[in-house]
């Protein structure tokens, strides 16, 4: 696989980059999958101001996902985080504000603008254990109105072309009546998460996370409560090689459904990442697997993603 990366430093602004290529069996996360190869590039710039008893960090990040054909997506985000150590540095309180734009040619219904407020507290319990508590409120304003019952592309909506791409919502011809029924979607997602990390040895640490999210949407069918648990294990094979393995499970209970059918989605995901550090550069390869089962079949999907890339960081 083709690898490329660059990162430089200009004064006290850190510039970083990473690039990778890979293969995604179901990039739209739809019931009828369409696999696509992709190239991914990400760039970031960070400026940290060291204040008297706290730090202020500004970050500009962006990535571009270049799928086969005209199915690209990209995301730009700007964030500011204020963090302050407390309890003789054992605790770290972080408050951040962020905004992002996301555009998606593969699934235009997912294109959106986001704004988020996040509060996080990390605490070092002892030399082996740390805990963290996060709370976030995120507003998602979707740009393109869509039919609330149409499902994802490929799930039977009939809005997908041969390349797996969802066509933009037109307002001409036979679709005129559907277009009149399309709804604008604005979500407010509140999330709280608790995580605990334990270092078992110099080479092995694990992190377990419990999370709850509530999504309130102007499209009633998109409102849900989600509970999840995740486990991440990190193995430091030696100074150069690192292996990360993760397993997660979540259940989403939707508040409203069509024809009074209950909708409950259960998602299981697993990930394996191997990294090799060579000086300031890092090579990485990852495998991801997602199996999402829904009580409403058209919302079930499977996805596997394999990618390899390179990054350069200080």
């Amino acid at each position: 696989m083709l690898l490329f990366s660059c990162q430089t430093s200009a004064d006290d602004i850190e510039l970083s980059g990473e690039a990778s290529v890979g293969y995604d069996t179901n990039p739209a996360q739809s019931h009828a999958s369409e696999d696509l190869a992709f190239a991914h590039i990400a760039l970031g710039a960070v400026k940290t101001l060291n204040l008297e008893q706290s730090d202020l960090r500004f970050a500009l990040d962006g990535w571009y996902h270049d799928y086969e054909a005209d199915n690209d997506s990209y995301r730009l985000s700007l964030s500011s985080a204020w963090s302050r150590p407390i309890a003789r540095d054992r605790g770290l309180l972080t408050f951040s504000v962020s905004g992002a734009i996301y555009r998606d040619a593969l699934v235009p219904a997912d294109a959106r603008n986001e704004g988020a407020l996040t509060l996080r507290y990390d605490h070092i319990l002892n030399a082996r254990d740390t805990v963290g508590l996060s709370a976030e409120v995120r507003r998602l304003d979707y740009r393109n109105p869509s039919l609330p019952w149409s499902g994802r592309p490929g799930s039977g909506s009939g809005r997908q072309n041969s390349g797996g791409r969802c066509k933009p919502s037109g307002r001409q011809g036979p679709r005129r009546r559907s277009a009149a029924l399309e709804q604008r979607r604005n979500d407010q997602r509140s999330t709280i998460a608790l995580d605990a990390t334990h270092a078992w040895s110099p080479t092995l640490s694990t992190r377990i996370t419990l999370a709850h999210a509530r999504n309130a949407s102007t499209v009633a069918l998109e409102s849900y409560d989600r509970n999840g648990i995740g486990l991440l294990a990190q193995f430091m094979l030696n100074n150069a090689w690192r292996l990360e393995s993760g397993l997660g499970w979540s259940r989403s209970d939707y508040s409203h459904t069509q024809r009074r059918l209950e909708r409950r989605d259960e998602e299981l995901n697993a990930a394996l990442v191997i990294r090799h550090r060579r000086g300031a550069r890092e090579l990485f390869c990852s495998l991801d697997w997602i199996d999402s089962d829904s009580t409403i079949d058209v919302h079930s999907f499977r996805q596997q993603v394999a990618q390899c890339g390179m990054a350069w960081s200080f």
């Binding site: 985080a81 988020a116 990390d122 999330t191 999370a211 989600r226 997660g248 990485f284 890339g309």
Partner: peptide, 26 residues
């Protein structure tokens, strides 16, 4: 210790495994 806003998440694996709310759960 991995904490604070500067923790990297290449490939997004931690986001998918719910490594903290701010990194993308849901």
């Amino acid at each position: 210790f991995e904490r604070g806003p500067g923790v990297t998440d290449r490939t997004g694996v931690r986001a998918r495994i719910m490594f903290g709310a701010q990194r993308g759960f849901g």
